[in-house]
């Protein structure tokens, strides 16, 4: 039963990342996900200091605030100071990350935020903390939390699909059509911060970054239609979760990391297959 729960939890933690990652890939902002997932560290530490526990609402709030703050800073340095976009991402997130590390060191006696757990997550232990009312066992707590996150992300994309798609594909056109591009930009960034913080405790920040980029890019290679890309990204994500857990089980290694390894492997296979097919088409077209 534990195997089942771990796979389900890893899929639930991955789906929102894969969906939002598709938008990020289209907007050429794949590295923003990386930046946000590092920048939320001081937010988590501060919220943790104030609330004293790991699963409080304050943690979401603090992390989301710092996530959005980092995107503001990136945007400001880029547009107002004329700093290159990549450099402004690099400087912003390292700044906030080092601030977070310093805070952890300073308050080390009051915080037991393990650097390892931030990195790898606690996927293998996630089924152990259960949601129990009276004598009824409703399953792992993480399942229900992540289920809620998936619902939130899904409804965000479902209800705002049109403007989000428009802003991602053609920002200029969206602007002319009277869509508030900045609003959608920051709402997307807010959502990315939200899912980053709500999933990183289970799966670790490596898998969050990898889930944001890898399934979406794999799907991006072989789809010409955005809805299809979203479906394919979900499919690849689920595949990598199932196979990745299998690998982790047999080698007895970190689950989150082996899922991201499998994601890379699937990407490689799809990339090579796509290359071969398109080469074949080229030859066929040339009549060879």
């Amino acid at each position: 039963m534990n195997h089942f729960w771990i796979i389900i939890i890893s899929i639930l933690a991955g789906l929102p990342c894969a969906w939002l990652g598709s938008f990020l890939v289209l907007r050429k902002m794949a590295m923003i996900g990386d930046a946000i997932s590092h920048s939320i560290l001081p937010g988590i530490v501060i919220a943790y200091l104030m609330s004293g526990q790991k699963d409080s609402f304050l943690l979401f709030l603090g992390a989301s605030l710092f996530g959005i703050l980092s995107t503001f800073l990136i945007e400001y340095l880029h547009s107002k100071s004329g700093l290159q976009a990549d450099a402004s991402i690099g400087i912003t997130f390292t700044f906030l990350f080092s601030l977070g590390v310093i805070l952890i060191c300073y308050f080390s006696s009051q915080i037991d935020l393990d650097q390892d757990c931030v990195l790898y997550g606690e996927l293998a232990y996630s089924p152990l903390s259960r949601w129990i009312i009276d004598i009824y066992d409703f399953g792992p707590k993480a399942f229900w939390v992540l289920f809620l996150v998936v619902i939130c992300t899904f409804s965000y994309i479902y209800f705002f699909y049109q403007p989000l798609k428009l802003v991602s594909f053609d920002e200029e056109f969206a602007k002319v059509s009277g869509i508030n591009v900045m609003l959608w930009h920051y709402s997307l960034m807010g959502m990315v911060s939200f899912i980053t913080v709500s999933t990183f405790e289970e799966v670790g920040s490596i898998l969050v970054i990898s889930n944001l980029a890898v399934p979406a890019l794999t799907a991006f290679l072989i789809s010409k239609n955005f809805k299809r890309m979203l479906f394919l990204a979900s499919f690849f994500l689920i595949l990598s979760c199932i196979l990745g857990y299998g690998l982790a089980y047999f080698l007895n290694v970190a689950v989150a990391a082996s899922i991201s390894l499998l994601g890379g492997l699937i990407f490689g296979i799809v990339f090579i297959t796509e290359k071969m097919i398109s080469n074949q088409k080229k030859y066929l077209a040339l009549g060879l």
Binding site: A30, L207, S210, L261, F267
Partner: peptide
């Protein structure tokens, strides 16, 4: 930038797999 995100996260994942191994 997507290529960077992809390569970086997968390589790092492989690193952690090896480390835990």
């Amino acid at each position: 930038d997507s290529a960077i995100a992809l390569v970086m996260s997968v390589f790092f994942g492989i690193g952690i797999v090896l480390l835990t191994y």
